[in-house]
Write a protein that binds this DNA or RNA. Sequence first.
DNA 1: TTGTACGCGTTATCAT
DNA 2: ATGATAACGCGTACAA
Lengths: 342, 342
Amino acid sequence: MKKITIKDIAKKAGVSKATVSMVLNNYDRIADETREKVLSIVKEMNYYPHESARLLAKKKSEAIAFVSARFAAPFISNILDAIEQRAFNINKYIHGIIPFSTRNEKEVKEELLRKILYSRKADAVIVLTLKPSEEIIKEYNQRKLPIILIENEMSGTHSIRVNNYNGAYMATEHLIKKARKNICLINGITHPPENFDINPTAIERKKGFEDAMRNLNVNYSEKNIEYIENYTFEEGKIALDNFLKKIPDIDAIFCAAGDLVAMGVIKRAQEFGIKIPDDLAIIGYDDIMAAKLLNPPLSSVRQPIEEIGKLAFDIAVDSMEGRLKEEKHITIEPELILRATT
Amino acid sequence: MKKITIKDIAKKAGVSKATVSMVLNNYDRIADETREKVLSIVKEMNYYPHESARLLAKKKSEAIAFVSARFAAPFISNILDAIEQRAFNINKYIHGIIPFSTRNEKEVKEELLRKILYSRKADAVIVLTLKPSEEIIKEYNQRKLPIILIENEMSGTHSIRVNNYNGAYMATEHLIKKARKNICLINGITHPPENFDINPTAIERKKGFEDAMRNLNVNYSEKNIEYIENYTFEEGKIALDNFLKKIPDIDAIFCAAGDLVAMGVIKRAQEFGIKIPDDLAIIGYDDIMAAKLLNPPLSSVRQPIEEIGKLAFDIAVDSMEGRLKEEKHITIEPELILRATT
DNA sequence: TTGTACGCGTTATCAT
DNA sequence: ATGATAACGCGTACAA
């Protein structure tokens, strides 16, 4: 079955390819009569321009790359959802958000970012949590490909950060004010193995926790901290087991590693007959949808995910379309949501 | 900053464009020496082939379209996740799964499927829940673009279905055997408004429910059924309110509209002090991740989502790569997962 | 409005 | 056995 190209339309309409192209791209220099005729034939023949050909000619990709580490973590997919939602709402780049995932290895990340840049797979790149090298940023700047960082800040980029320090500080402070004495932290790893990527949020949250404890004169030591790697439900269970061995009179946990992990803690606690919040208070992080549906509903630090996604997308678009002159660096404050686990 | 093309590589390596291309595509008719030289220059100059150009020349899109209705429903995104996971695992089409969403309007759906077909945005299409018209299928067949249906079956396509009838039958049967007397059903709408798409699963599940009730001689009427549109948590709450008005002695609900809705029911029941499962037994559908984390953990009909995604993806790939001669139609059986709500 | 160069690889055909 | 030449894929946009 013969494929229909712009040439076929042109021939049948008795005009040139250029005219057809101009009609399809809404140029106004075409006579109404011609336009009508072309459009009717386009519809009649079910003609749609060949994507790759169109993009090649336009020197665009009409896509935005979304680069993140590969985790099942709800936070990542929620951010992606928020970006897609925004695209859908303003009706731009609707099918043009392409998720790429590194596996947390630095090499892979660099390679991937280069590939996106030089193969022109995208007209802008949004990078979540990962931190590109200075060298990469330079190359992006030279090629004038906008790059938007979420959770990191570098010059040569646009950036959106949530104040992780404050989020952790607030949560910890609240537990202290609730007169908890043995407060523990579950956190992402802050000292990843060689050639793995660091997660800046884990470091900031740890600092927020420690400062709150110190400023309000609560004892703690490194024993009070458990580190987890993959942000899973199972790891939450294990973390609680570990704490119970080290600190039998534990009475509060701030789970900076996310609500999913916190849910694991709750599950395990319930298996042991530990009462929440009486015996053990818990605050999670992210405020995922399931948090408020739990029994008991989980207190959590909410990141304004919708807003982050919206901002990232809008900056990307503005930047691609040349409306952004200077670098944009935004910090958003998180919110402590109190429910029944504290 | 000048963009680097295959020509630049060729010149610098003292060979022709064709040779560079052949090296990059692993043709074996290139001398090792030449190959080495080309590769080293490619790396040195950070050359990556231009995507659109490559795809245009190859007459491929290297993408798979995933078409579904736009819902926040976990089922949809879980299927998509499963497909992407599979792509990742076998390392094919990793960034090539493009989600498209109709808004449930028939017109939009047809238009979208045509556009994907004729603009060659994808080399295969996976359609979830939606049912294309015969006409569209014919056009796909003519153009030899493989189309894979999930939850529908038509000739001219490949298809993967989960046995919704059995799923509903099992769940209902179980409630009956637990000696429940006033069993109600929450279901997706089976008679959608004009020019909206029907959801075949809702119809099949209703039939499974009704047959189980009839075969086991349990009374019920249309009063025992609530229909919901958007599969949300909130709708679950409302559905329970409605039931309580109509059927005060309700003692079981099979929520064929999914676990999220079932979670709404549970929440509302707990607000009223209704004991689960003593006063009210509940079975959900889909067995989403949150189901087993709830308190009490939710009984549910599990759809083997991983497997569905894997099958859909594999059929798409096999079909694209010409390894599939006949149509493939697969039916998968669901599984009843019993937890604490029954 | 039209003719045509252009964007950038791929691959079939030809040459050594 | 290797590699070069040139046609091709299909729109877009500028000069005429």
